[in-house]
Amino acid sequence: MTTQERLQQAAELLAPWTKSTATPEDVRLDVVIDAADLGAAVAALHGARWGYLTAITGLDDGPDAGGLQALYHFIGGAAVVTLRVSLPYDNPTVPSVCGVLASASFFERELAEMFGVTVVDTPNPDRLFLPEDWPDGAYPLRKDYTDVPAPQAD
């Protein structure tokens, strides 16, 4: 299957939930969907054995621009399909996709701790990278995050 056919196939698979699409490069397809449809969309790709989830990117463009987003990147050969979900700053929530893709667990943990996104039903909600004494509510990759106080000397 050529890359274009793959992208075509992905576009068809995702059509029921697609709100808009974009093609930033010829090997890429960006599909905007609702957070609520994430599970179904991922299951559709997975059911058709379309590629694998390579990363989840959190993105904070600031409230004036794109706001908070989560990007789910899938790869099939040379084709890259990105599911793009917009999230409100006020209690951003996405459903876990670990039920379908077990390998997403680490990515979801990272998304949660770095951007303060609640991942509903993720198998392990613990922090992955940040220290135990990291203050709650400080999400380092948010744009409004500047710095946290240094830990106490003992």
Binding site: M114, R127, F129, L130, P131, P140, L141, Y145
Partner: peptide, 9 residues
């Protein structure tokens, strides 16, 4: 995370 330095930020 023992070597997490915060490079992305």
């Amino acid at each position: 995370g023992y070597v997490h330095r915060g490079i992305e930020k």
